[in-house]
């Protein structure tokens, strides 16, 4: 039972979370648009699973929409994961390569 007050707080927290530090309006635009793009993109990715079966796609899409609301702004995590730190890039290269090997060899 959330009152209007707490809803306002929630929205405020949500917004503050991805403007911390860089509060200029043009940077803010970037973060907001980036967030929306990411959400839309992840939904499109989920809908790709219709190739295997349509119900699976629908279930995944619903699950992803729920998860997106639950986990809040994605864009900060996205920015962090896409930073050019050597270890981070190395980590993601390993993950990609393992997925490629696993999918092609045992898919």
């Amino acid at each position: 039972m959330g009152s209007i007050d707490s809803l306002y707080d929630k929205v405020k927290r949500f917004v503050i979370e991805f403007t911390s530090g860089k509060g200029t309006s043009s940077a803010m635009t970037g973060y907001m648009t980036g967030e929306l793009q990411t959400v839309a993109f992840i939904m499109i990715l989920a809908s790709f699973f219709r190739i295997f079966s349509v119900p699976l796609g629908i279930v995944l899409l619903a699950a992803v929409v729920g998860a997106l609301f639950f986990f809040g702004p994605m864009i900060k995590a996205m920015e962090r994961e896409n930073s050019s730190g050597l270890n981070r890039v190395l980590f993601w290269v390993m993950i990609y390569f393992a997925v490629i090997i696993a999918v092609t060899l045992w898919g």
Binding site: N87, I95, A98
Partner: peptide, 17 residues
Amino acid sequence: ALKGSRGIIAVIALMII
């Protein structure tokens, strides 16, 4: 970046490779 759960994931990935 490579400590904790990420490290474990990385090790699993390396093993798959």
